[in-house]
Amino acid sequence: GDNKKVDSEYVRKGTCSIFAFVEPLGGRHHTSVREHRTAVDWAEEIKYMVDEMYPEAEKIILVMDNLNTHKPSSLYKAFNPEEARRIIKKLEIHYTPSTAAG
């Protein structure tokens, strides 16, 4: 008389990080999958965006989440100071508001 009860258990098979650049008005987007989400991973993705996606742009406006690795200082972890400064000069960074309850 009782209904059979089944408990489906989630089994984690690993993790990855997905980086996505989206330009809705221009109809452009780029995604990449990386094993981790380190400062160097972020810096390498930003360099790709600056040098490959928008090489002619004078200024690139970024709107992104406020993670600890998503900082201009991360570029200095990945590249020499001159290269990091070159990339930073092309960026105007705006962070999304924190969702932390006050």
Rank of each mutant, 00 (worst) to 15 (best):
T99A: 14
D7V: 15
E23A: 07
R34D: 03
N68P: 04
R37S: 04
T69S: 11
S8L: 14
A84M: 02
D7C: 12
P24K: 10
N3Q: 09
D51L: 04
A43G: 00
V6Y: 14
R86W: 03
R85V: 09
V11R: 10
E58A: 01
P72L: 01
K77E: 15
T38F: 03
I87K: 01
Y48F: 07
W42C: 04
Y95M: 00
G26S: 05
F21L: 09
V63F: 15
I46E: 00
K4I: 06
I61V: 13
T31I: 13
K89S: 11
R85Q: 14
R34W: 09
H36W: 01
M53H: 05
N66R: 15
V40N: 01
T69V: 12
S17Y: 14
G27A: 11
T15W: 08
V33Q: 06
I88L: 04
A57T: 10
Y95G: 04
R12W: 03
K89N: 09
K5G: 03
R85W: 06
Y48Q: 00
E56H: 14
Y48E: 00
E23V: 06
A84Y: 06
E83C: 08
K89Y: 03
K90C: 04
K90Y: 02
F19Q: 06
S74V: 06
E83F: 08
P72I: 05
